[in-house]
Design a protein around this nucleic acid. Structure first.
Length: 290
DNA sequence: CAAGTGCCTTTATC
DNA sequence: AGATAAAGGCACT
């Protein structure tokens, strides 16, 4: 399949897949490989042209957020010099619409872990409980279904190096499987309502909920606050908060829920309805500055 | 080289 | 409500 993008539709595949929103994509040569919807999705970009296998045009547009009006989004979020610099540097980075189930488990794994470790945990889970597919002579594994993860025992889960997260994943899988929770429907639910529902999953707090809603369900107003966003706020946006508050969050590594909500609300009010895009540009910029 | 710190935090408990 | 400890393990200093 081939998809020709217009100049009004900036897209950068490398930025989009390597910025840390998705964990199961790999680049080999010019091609990116990822397992999406039980199939190996293979894609490469040259200029405005996208070439891919194992997906149709409509799905590719949805998955890579190609229906987001980036120029319009930029006009909303570029409120100051710093965010402008990030947009200039990473123009074309888009928010994905990942599979919500895989995304949910990914961000349960992500708590208190770094990206290589998250990738390792998800690989272990897929290799152990997913289905193997061979493509271009390479081995790939589908992401295990809720039913599968609900039935396996804790010992086997723990062998994936999940630590205390094994229980959270098991409980979440059971909740999704047994209650028939339709994660795909979160797309049609309001951000506020969807966020409340997500918090019922064990192992999902405010930050993980915001990530899942942003990276899988198109809630572009979500503004996940992690240590990097906290640092960015302390570095560039102190003037929006009282000094005591900045001192307080600077002095300790973790955030209380109320501190989280305060930073989150700032992001959503300041950057507007596309705060999630601002978040991801700020995040990727900060992480690559070193 | 050992020990401490940090990691896209959340839960449990007080 | 808000503070505090614990959680696995690895990379880095």
């Amino acid at each position: 399949m081939e998809l020709q993008l217009s100049n009004l539709c900036p897209f950068n595949l490398d930025f989009t897949l390597s910025c840390g929103q998705a964990f199961r994509w790999d680049k080999r040569g010019e091609w990116w490989y990822g397992v999406v919807r039980e199939k190996v999705f293979k894609i490469r970009q040259s200029g405005n042209k996208l070439e891919f296998e194992n997906a149709d045009i409509s799905f590719a547009k949805d998955y890579f957020g190609l229906r987001d009006d980036l120029p319009e989004i930029f006009s909303h979020i570029t409120k100051d010099k710093h965010i402008k610099a990030t947009v200039k540097k990473f123009k074309g980075l888009r928010i994905l619409r990942q599979d919500p189930w895989e995304c949910l488990i990914s961000y349960i794994c992500a708590t208190y872990k770094n990206i290589p470790a998250i990738r390792q945990m998800l690989f272990n889970l897929s290799k152990k409980f997913g289905d193997k597919t061979v493509f271009d002579g390479l081995d790939f594994y589908t992401f295990p279904t809720p039913a599968k993860l609900a039935e396996v025992n804790m010992k086997e889960l723990a062998e994936c190096g999940l630590g205390y997260r094994a229980r959270y994943i098991s409980e979440t899988a059971k909740m999704v499987h047994e209650n028939g929770f339709r994660l795909e429907d979160l797309r049609k639910t309001s951000y506020e309502k969807a966020r409340k529902e997500m918090l019922d999953f064990l192992g999902v707090g405010l930050k993980a909920a915001d990530c899942v809603l942003l990276f899988s369900s198109g809630k572009l107003e979500a503004f996940p606050v992690d240590v990097w966003i906290k640092r960015i706020i302390i570095k560039h946006y102190t003037s929006h908060f009282p000094t005591e508050f900045i001192m307080k969050i600077s002095s300790k590594s973790s955030l209380t829920n109320s501190e989280y909500e305060r930073l989150n609300l700032f992001g959503r009010r300041y950057f507007g309805n596309y705060a999630g895009y601002a978040q991801e540009y700020l995040y990727h910029f900060e992480r690559t500055q070193c």
